[in-house]
Amino acid sequence: MNVSFGLVKTAADEAADALLVRESRWLRELERVETLEGQVPRVLDEGTSANGRRYLVISMWPARGETRAFTADHARFLATLGRARFRSLEFDACGTCQWLQESLVQANEFVPRRSLGLLEEAYHDCETALLYWTGPFVLSQGDFAPWNIRNLGSQLFVTDWGQARADASPLDDVLHYLMIQRALNFRPVTVPVLRQAMSRAAEFAVQAYPEWTWRAPVIGALTLVYLLGVVLHRSLARRRLDRNDRVVGAYWKLLEKRSAWMPK
């Protein structure tokens, strides 16, 4: 029998404070989405502890056996999440595009010139491929991975919303689920592996958002948006581009080899 309980999350530093504030804000917003009821935690309490650090108490289900496969349940959850908050926009008008631009400016402070050039070229390729495309930009969970998902049988229960963001590519969470577990577990993240992930993401997009066109160049460009975004996010958090980082190193190689997998 499934029995829910309260989980207390306490920040250890200022960065964790900010994550808990973000998580609380998104969870409170998602509480109002009826189609996600029972699939995301509820905020039970929050505040500041005696040592000045933030804490958050949320509802939780006991951990159960996780699956690495991206199933119909995962697709259904992400489609529901995406429809809960999305905007039909051109790429250069969406929040993700603006965040990438701002992040590249910040990266200029610590990324070597040659490496920064590759990041800027990758962004230019995204912008060029998506120049005349309008599509859905959605709410992303931000770390959609097996370790943040409980399988309750008929539905999923998804935790850890501190990285959630609006105006994200609808492919981000799918690609993240398929790619991040390989990178973190030292499994090969090769061009063929990426192509398989792109194919699954394209299938998801067609099923979840049939109103928009999903040509191969669009899928390729949005995949590049995902890879570039992860490299920038992890690098900005540490104020350095660390290719020894399992994720950054694997994704960096895919950025370098993008001519081998990006459709023309």
Score class of each variant (00 low, 15 high):
L152C: 13
P170Y: 06
Q39P: 07
S59A: 13
R42M: 07
S4Q: 14
A205Y: 12
Y123H: 15
V193L: 01
H74A: 09
C126I: 12
A72I: 07
V158Q: 04
L236V: 09
C97R: 01
L222N: 06
L152T: 09
M198R: 02
R187W: 02
I219F: 12
E66R: 10
P188A: 08
F5W: 13
L255D: 00
Y177M: 12
W147F: 04
L131E: 14
T223R: 00
L254S: 03
E31A: 15
V33S: 04
R53C: 10
R234Q: 04
L27H: 07
A12D: 11
L100G: 03
L7E: 12
R258A: 00
A202E: 10
A50C: 02
V105D: 06
A237C: 12
E90N: 11
Y55W: 15
P146R: 08
C97V: 02
L19R: 14
E121G: 02
K9F: 08
L81P: 03
W252A: 01
L116V: 05
A197H: 06
F91S: 03
R150T: 10
N151T: 08
E127N: 09
V33D: 03
F86S: 06
W61Q: 12
L254M: 08
E211P: 01
R28G: 11
A208L: 06
P112I: 13
H176S: 10
F86H: 09
V247E: 02
F157E: 13
R240Y: 01
P188W: 06
L171M: 09
E14Y: 00
T213G: 04
G117C: 10
L104K: 06
A69F: 11
R28T: 13
P192W: 04
T213D: 09
E37Y: 12
E256S: 09
R195L: 15
V231F: 00
G47D: 02
L236W: 03
Y123Q: 14
T213S: 07
V206Y: 00
W26D: 05
S169L: 11
A18C: 05
Q106S: 12
R239W: 13
L118C: 02
E121M: 04
R243S: 01
N151F: 09
L178Y: 02
R64C: 12
G162E: 14
V105M: 01
A168T: 02
H74F: 11
R258P: 00
V8L: 15
M60C: 15
M262F: 04
F91A: 07
P217C: 08
R76A: 12
H176T: 13
D160C: 08
T35A: 15
L152Q: 04
L56C: 08
P41M: 10
D73N: 06
A15G: 10
F186L: 01
E14Q: 01
D73S: 12
R258H: 03
R195Y: 02
E120R: 05
N51H: 09
P136I: 14
R243T: 09
D242E: 15
T48M: 09
Y132F: 11
D172V: 00
T35D: 14
S24P: 02
R113E: 15
N244I: 01
L131H: 13
T48I: 15
D173F: 03
R238V: 09
G65Q: 07
V105W: 00
G95C: 08
E37H: 14
A145H: 03
L184D: 09
